[in-house]
């Protein structure tokens, strides 16, 4: 009932509001909401820093992360280096900086691939319905029933050796595994939001005008059903980074000489009691990166969801 009361007030709002401000698209409204949200700025700064780290690590450190000074193995933070050195004598600070590249690459590429596959399949099953929907939904359910971590382990261990040849192939193999198992949740989401948008009168009006299916999808369904996908994709980007670290930790994701937070965390386990800083710094970077994307997803959701405004 109180919703009704507020609605009664807010319905009246745009009437004159529009006179003052021309061209208020929903995207610009979303940006307006984001701009005033401190969570957005915190997460944006975090993501920007990590992205910069991934693209241009030498901006942050001049030390070579593969320069092992065994003599200074396990030295503590402050003894000549910021974060100390690990068991191999690598500079932990430099390792953390260089580790960002693998994480960001895996996160971004997995998300892009999962969004493309999941979004496309979700769109097809939501828009066409019927047998297409049934088929794709069942296929999605099958993938959905495979636990992500277990599935990834099996997938990765079954890949041919050739994938371990160079850095990009190693990254790609993790990306493939995660995208292969991650698309169903995005497809489900896309499907349900397409099904919500499809019966709207503006879609019917376009049909009545004789618009082609591709036009209906492009200008009516896609722009109105994309918001949940963007939100969940942003949040799961953080999740993929965490899973990549987990796989690397278990020794089946990235492998040395690749540099990854997961690998470093795994290597630090031996000194958990004696040299906790070896574990602490890569874990901190990992957590901050995951947190950045999750917070960003939350902020974007608040901005895109008109109900919270």
């Amino acid at each position: 009932m109180t919703d009704a009361a507020v609605a009664e007030v807010t319905v009246a709002e745009p009437r004159e509001g529009g006179v003052r401000e021309e061209e208020r698209s929903l995207a610009s409204d979303a940006w307006r909401a984001l701009r005033g949200n401190p969570v957005f700025w915190v997460s944006a700064v975090l993501i920007a820093v990590f992205t910069l780290m991934a693209i241009w690590p030498s901006l942050f450190t001049n030390t070579d992360p593969r320069e092992a000074i065994l003599a200074e193995s396990r030295s503590r933070p402050g003894d000549g280096t910021w974060f100390g050195r690990d068991i191999q004598g690598y500079d932990i600070y430099a390792r953390c900086i260089y580790g960002a590249r693998a994480s960001i690459l895996v996160g971004v590429m997995t998300t892009a691939m999962a969004v493309a596959i999941g979004g496309g399949i979700g769109m097809i099953s939501g828009y066409l319905g019927g047998a297409w929907d049934a088929t794709f939904s069942r296929i999605g359910d099958i993938f959905f029933s495979i636990p992500l971590l277990l599935g990834a382990i099996i997938f990765l261990s079954s890949l041919p050796e050739f994938f371990n040849d160079n850095y990009f192939l190693v990254i790609m193999k993790v990306v493939l595994a995660l995208a292969f198992l991650g698309w169903p949740s995005l497809a489900r989401l896309m499907r349900s939001s397409v099904i919500q948008v499809k019966p709207n009168d503006y879609v019917q009006a376009a049909r009545a005008l004789g618009a082609s299916p591709s036009r209906i999808i492009r200008s009516h369904i896609l722009p109105n059903s994309l918001a949940p996908l963007i939100v969940v994709a942003t949040i799961s980007l953080g999740g993929y980074i965490a899973v990549e670290a987990t796989l690397s930790f278990l020794g089946i994701g990235l492998q040395p000489p690749a540099i990854s937070w997961g690998i470093d965390i795994s290597a630090a386990i031996v000194g958990l009691r004696t040299t906790p800083h070896m574990l602490f710094f890569p874990s901190l970077f990992l957590s901050l990166a995951v947190l950045g994307f999750i917070l960003m997803g939350d902020a974007v959701r608040d901005a895109l969801d008109p109900k919270t405004r």
């Binding site: 709207n200 009545a208 005008l209 200008s219 109105n224």
Partner: peptide, 21 residues
Amino acid sequence: MRRNIQIVFQDPYTSLNPRMT
């Protein structure tokens, strides 16, 4: 034929695409 027969819907809030000018 669709040129010759068109429709106006009931709900002014769902009949226009919110993302289009």
